[in-house]
């Protein structure tokens, strides 16, 4: 039992390392995502200009940019396996849950990298009052975890459909609306100097719920 648990943790770790390595080799997923995020940020900034203290619009735009950057790129981890015909081999060496968990952690790292570039640029270009850093980062990180958890599950499904990437954004969005609503509200509250406890717990609860359900569902992902 002990050995099995450790070996599946080892499998998750191995998948995560493999993901990072194969992404780093080509970097085209990362490049595309960064380019998309910076482009949409530039489009938004160019269209509306610095917003000063319009925190309602600022928080909405920040999350819309982050969401679309995520929706344009997070299906990549699974679609790559299908398109490269490597999924069968991967399934021989690891359980569906280990594969999905490895990809979930990879997606999380992927999001953090995108945010590390996008968010400072956003603050720079859009103006706005200085954020309350701890609360701001809490919103960002919890939002990212919820985003990655939902997107990983949906992208594993979407990779097995016709047209693959095309449906991903549309099918993910219904699952992400609660995240969007809570993250936008919390981000705005921190700009106004308010508390974000309620939004943080909503995001955390949502991420945990999706993660828990995912653990039950991952096993059904591939059976043929």
């Amino acid at each position: 039992m002990e050995r099995k648990a450790s070996s599946s943790a080892a499998a998750v770790w191995a998948i995560l390392r493999k993901e990072c390595r194969s992404e780093w080799r080509t970097r085209y997923g990362l490049n595309a995502a960064l380019l998309f995020a910076v482009t949409s940020l530039a489009a938004v900034s160019f269209a509306v200009g610095p917003l000063g203290d319009r925190t309602d619009i600022l928080s909405a735009l920040l999350w819309v940019v982050l969401f679309f950057a995520a929706l344009s790129s997070l299906s990549h981890a699974f679609v790559r396996e299908i398109e490269g015909h490597t999924l069968t081999l991967l399934r021989l060496v690891a359980s569906p849950t280990a594969i999905a968990l490895g990809k979930l952690f990879f997606n999380l790292i992927f999001l953090v990298v995108i945010e590390a570039v996008t968010v400072p640029l956003f603050l720079l270009l859009m103006g706005g009052p200085p954020p309350g850093w701890s609360r701001f980062l809490a919103m960002l990180s919890l939002g990212s975890v919820a985003l990655a958890a939902s997107c990983t599950l949906v992208s594993a499904i979407i990779a097995q459909t016709r047209g693959r990437g095309a449906l991903f954004a549309g099918v993910s969005l219904p699952l992400l609306l609660p995240v969007l609503a809570a993250a936008v509200k919390g981000t705005r509250a921190q700009w106004l100097g308010g508390t974000v406890g309620a939004e943080a717990s909503i995001l955390l609860a949502y991420a945990l719920a999706v993660f828990g359900v995912s653990l039950l569902l991952y096993d059904h992902l591939w059976e043929d």
Partner: peptide
């Protein structure tokens, strides 16, 4: 199978919204 997985995941989102 796949649409049932999606449906079950959406089930989680409904009460949150």
């Amino acid at each position: 199978r796949l649409s049932a997985i999606y449906s079950a995941a959406a089930f989680v989102a409904v009460p949150f919204l």
